[in-house]
Nucleic acid binder design. Structure first.
Lengths: 220, 220, 220, 220
DNA sequence: AATGAATGAGACTTCATTCAT
DNA sequence: CATGAATGAAGTCTCATTCAT
C-alpha cells in the first residue's frame, strides 16, 4: 500500500511531452502517469458524471492497467475529491489573469462574472465536475467552496468604500459571496449546458446580473 | 413491465385514515400503498440521500415487499423523479399562504425568502431532496425548476413599476429568478444543514439578502 | 440486507427430495437452496480448502447465481464459520451412536478413537475442514473445540474411579482432552490423507494410542 | 527467473555485523540481504500470520525494494516454506541444550516438554509460524514434522527398556511421537496464546501431560 | 543486484428488477 | 395485487510477479 503522496498541483494539464533528446527519467514517467490518470478522470467525469467514472473507464482512457491506478491514488474516491479543488484553482488563476486592476469595482465584478463563463468554455469538463461534486465529492466540494469564498470575500472587503462595495458587515459579505457563487452555479446549469458540454451564455444573463449588482432588484 | 403512470399529485401526506364504517375500496387501498411508498422514499432520501435510497430500504419503511414497489412505479428512478416536483409544489403552497398581498414588493420578497427557510424547518427531508436532485433526479429537478421559475417570474412581472421591481426585460427577469433560486439553494447548503436535518439560518443571512435586493452590491 | 437468521442445524445433508405429490412450498424451496449452498461449500472446502472456496465456486456447485448466496448468508465468511461446528456435531452424533454404554471405560475410549476415523471415511470433506478451520474460520474452530471439549471432559469425569479414568484434577482433565483431540488431529493429518480424501489408518495407530492410554509411555 | 536455491541454514539470526576494517565482500552483502528478508518474514508471519505476509510488507520491514525479493527467493511461497523448518531446527537445538543426559527417561521427557514452551516464550513468532504452517506452507510443515519426528523417534528408541520407554513397536513409536507433537501443538494453541504473542502455560498442563506419560489415562 | 511502477486476474459484494406462487 | 427469492451485471480493490532502468 504505497501512500503515493505528492503535491496535487499542476496536475491535469496533459503533460506537454518535453521536447528534448534524453529519455524521460523514471520519476518523470511516474508523474506523467499520475497526470494522465487525473486528466482522464476529469474528462470522464466531465462527460459522463462522477457516477459513471469507474476506475475501469478512467484507466482505459489513460491507457494503463486498472491496478496502476492504485499505485498513484489510494482509492477511487481520493482522486475524485481532488478533481474540483485542483481545477477550481485553475479557474481562479484564469479569472485573475483577466482582471484589470485599475478598473472600477463594478467593472471588475463584471469581468469576474464573464471570465467564469469563459473558463467553462475553455474547460468544458468543469461544468459537470462543479455541479456534481457536492454529492459525489463532498470534501473536495467543501475545499473548493472555502478556496473560492475566502478569496472572494477578501476581494470584496478591499472594495468597500465610496463608489465601491456597499455597507455590509463581514458576516453579510460572506453571505453575499455565497449568493454570487450560487448564482454562477445555477446560471451555468440553466444557460451553459449545450449539446456536448458548455456553450456561451446569452448576453441578457450578464446584463441582468450586473443590474442586480449595481442597483438591486426592487426599488425603494 | 407495466408503465404505471398516474397523477403524482396529492402524494406524500401520510393518508389520515378516514374513519368510516365501510372498508376501503380496492383502488383506495392501492392508493394507500402508493402513498406509503412515496412517503417512505421521501423520508429515506431526506435522511440518507438518493444514493442510499434502495428499493429494499424504501419498501421496508413502507412495510411492503420489494416486488410490490413495481406494482406502483415502473422503476426506482420513476419514483425518485417525482419526489422533488411534488414536495416542491407543497413548498410553493406553503409560501403562498404566508404572503400578505397588501404588502410592498420588497416586503413580499422578504416574506418569500424567509418562508423558504421556514419550510425547510417544517419539512426536513426537503433540504436533501432539493440539493441532490440535480444529480440523481435530473428530470424531476428540471420540472421543479420550471415550476418555480414560471410562477416566480410571473410574480415579479406583476411587481414591475414605481417602487417595485426595477427595469428588467422579461428575459432578464428569468435570469434574476434563477439567481434568486440559486441563492436560496447555496445558502441552504451553507447555513441550513444541522446535526439532524435542517436548522434556522442566522439573521445576517436575511439582512444581506435584503440589502442586495434593495440596493445592489456595488454603488454607482 | 436481509439478515436471514435460521437454525444452522440439519444443514448439509443433501436434502432427500421429499417423495410426495405436492409441489414444494416456497419456504421449503428456500431451505433447500440454503442447504445446497452449505453442502456445496463443505464439498468445495473439503476438496480444495478454504482458500479456494470462492463464492463463485460454491454457487456454481450449488447451481444458483452468485447473488443468491447473499440471500442466505450475510457474507462468505459467515458460511465458512458454520461449516466446522455443524459437521462437528454430526461427528459427535456419529460417535455417540457407535458407543456401547455397557462397555468398560477403556473399551469406550477405543470406540471413540476408532469412530473418529470412521467418520473421516464417511465424510471425507471433514478432514480438511477440520484441519484448516483454525486459520480460516477461527470462530467456528473455537466453537467446535468448545463443543467437543466440553462433552469430552464431562464424559471423562463420569469415568473417573476404580478401573476407570485415573487420578486427574478437573483442570488436568481439560488438558488431557486437548491432548487427545490434538492426537486425533495430528494422526489424521499424518495417516488419514490419501489420494482423494480420507483413507483408513493402519492398525498400529490404534494399538499405539491404546497402549498410551492404558499404560502411559514411560515406565516408573 | 533465477531459481536462487541456497542452503537455508543459519538464516534468521539478525547477522551481528562483524566489526572489522575490511568492507564486506559482495557475497557477504548478498547474504545479509537474504538474511534480512528471512528475518523480516519471520517477524511478519509471527505477528500478522502468513495471510498478511505480503511481499510488500516483508520487503518494507527488511528495508529493500519489492523487486529485490526475487533476487533472493524464487517466489513468495518459497520463502514461506523455509520459515518453519529453519526455526524448527533452532527449537531442536534449544531443547537439546536443556537436556541433562544423565537424567531418567521420564525426567528427560519432562524437560523436553517444558523446553518446548520455553522456546515459545523466547521466540514469540514461532507460535504462529508453527500453527499456520500446515495450511500456508504445507511442504515446510511436512519437512518440519519429519525433522522432529525422526529425531524424536530415535531418542525414544534409545530409551526403550527397563524403567524407560515401554513396549512399543517401531511403527507404534512413530505414532506416539505424532501424538506427542500433536499434544504440544494443541496445548500451545489453547494455553500459550496471550495478548501479544506467547505466554507461559499453567502448571497443571505439565502435570497432566506427565501423568499421562507415566501412567496412561485409564487404569486396567 | 537493486529498484519500484506496471500489470491483470480474480475475489467479494450490492442491488434493481423479474416472476412464479 | 402482494410476495420475496433469484438473478447477474458491474464495480472496487489486492497483490504476486515482471522487467526496464
Amino acid at each position: 500500500m504505497p501512500p503515493v503522496k505528492s503535491a496535487p498541483s499542476a496536475l491535469l494539464k496533459t503533460s506537454p511531452r518535453p521536447k528534448r533528446a534524453t529519455k524521460p527519467t523514471r520519476s518523470e514517467k511516474n508523474d506523467d502517469v499520475k497526470r494522465r490518470l487525473f486528466s482522464a478522470a476529469a474528462k470522464v467525469v466531465g462527460r459522463y458524471g462522477y457516477a459513471e467514472a469507474s476506475v475501469a473507464r478512467i484507466t482505459e482512457l489513460a491507457g494503463v492497467a486498472q491496478g496502476t491506478f492504485y499505485n498513484h491514488f489510494g482509492n477511487r474516491q481520493e482522486l475524485l475529491e481532488q478533481l474540483l479543488p485542483v481545477i477550481g484553482q485553475q479557474m481562479v488563476a484564469f479569472i485573475q489573469r483577466k482582471l484589470d486592476q485599475s478598473a472600477s469595482e463594478l467593472e471588475k465584478e463584471q469581468t469576474r462574472f464573464k471570465a467564469f463563463f469563459d473558463f467553462l468554455l475553455e474547460t468544458p469538463e468543469f461544468l459537470r465536475i462543479l455541479n456534481e461534486a457536492e454529492v459525489y465529492a463532498p470534501e473536495g466540494y467543501q475545499k473548493h467552496l472555502d478556496n473560492i469564498a475566502t478569496s472572494y470575500v477578501r476581494t470584496l472587503k478591499r472594495g468597500r468604500g465610496a463608489g465601491g462595495v456597499g455597507d455590509f458587515t463581514d458576516e453579510e459579505l460572506e453571505v453575499i459571496v455565497h449568493i454570487l457563487m450560487g448564482a454562477r452555479g445555477y446560471l451555468s446549469r440553466r444557460y451553459a449546458y449545450g449539446e456536448a458540454g458548455a456553450q456561451p451564455v446569452p448576453d441578457h444573463v450578464q446584463s441582468a446580473y450586473m443590474k442586480l449588482i449595481a442597483n438591486g432588484l426592487i426599488g425603494r
